[in-house]
């Protein structure tokens, strides 16, 4: 069984994230104020943390922009 040192990590649960295959798409979202307002922190070129409780609003925004993200439920 894998044992992790308890003081070496923090567990973030129920965290809304957006993952993109092409980092340029995330760049575009962050440059667009109307989309960026849902993004809280970029963790990597491909992954960003979203505002809790606003994933539905972001999904609507992404759909409006013509994107079709896969939505993975909790």
């Amino acid at each position: 069984m894998l044992m992790l040192e308890l003081d070496k990590y923090i567990l973030h649960e129920n965290l809304p994230l957006l993952e993109v295959a092409n980092p340029q798409e995330l760049d575009v979202f962050l440059a667009d104020a109307r989309t960026a307002r849902f993004i809280r922190r970029r963790l990597s070129p491909h992954v960003a943390v979203l505002a809790p409780g606003q994933d539905a609003a972001l999904l609507a925004r992404l759909r409006k922009l013509g994107h079709t993200p896969k939505v993975l439920e909790r």
């Binding site: 649960e13 129920n14 965290l15 809304p16 994230l17 957006l18 993109v20 994107h67 993200p69 939505v71």
Partner: peptide
């Protein structure tokens, strides 16, 4: 593109 509604990180 994937939107995780409740990921574990």
């Amino acid at each position: 593109m994937t939107l995780y509604q409740g990921a574990r990180l």
